[in-house]
Amino acid sequence: MSDKKNIFERFGESQVWKSIFRSGVPRTRRQRMMSVLNSVFLHLHPVRLPRHAVKLKFTWCMGGLTFFLFLVLTISGILLMFYYRPTAEYAYTDMIDLGEQVPLGIMREIHRWGAHAMVITTWLHMFRVFMTGSYKPPREFNWSIGVLLLVLTLLLSFTGYLLPWDQLAMWAITVGGNMARATPFVGHEGPGAALLSIGDINFINMGADAKFALLGGRFVGEAALLRFYVLHCIGLPFVVMILMAVHFWRVRKDGGISGPT
């Protein structure tokens, strides 16, 4: 009998294959359910869904695309990190090299346009969730997590802005840093900062305020480049991943995708 089986079938029955994919090729209803349940990736999803939930006109797949773009940005970002050096001396020339000396010189393009696209998909996902009233009980908290994820998406994009070390970068961050300077109480040109002083000593001054903490100096320089690099590559993605885990977990725990009752 066994000689009638083709190579794929034989492979599918091998011990190796079966140890990885326990439920076999998803042909029967049971196998299909098990293949979702048994996969660490697929079990983000429930096994069964109401019919409206798989329709594109309901979900627009925007949440999924946002996550997908996050993965694309992570991978392309890691590839960029192999060549990019966050110093005032090299940052700009490394940018040029990334386009001209590195094979498949569109990685920076993928990263930059992907970042634009991710802001747009996050927007649209939020818009969809709002229009379908999906933030209503019991999903209130998950909406709030989502808002934080939107803010982090914008911050990730913003910190990435400095890294090319060109004029656009320089001045966008100068303006951003000077906004921090105006933070009430903790910025040295913000209202209330003058209250935090004893005699002539200002505790909040050019060398110690929110702007300084952000830039690592009194103006945008090499220290700021390094700080933004660390925030962009490690700090913010770390927070995003934690919040994303909460966000996905809560989608399931709050009763799965919203729908009419």
Partner: peptide, 11 residues
């Protein structure tokens, strides 16, 4: 209800 595999996964 519909199954996630294949209906949603394919979309």
């Amino acid at each position: 209800k519909v199954l996630v595999w294949p209906d949603l996964v394919y979309v």
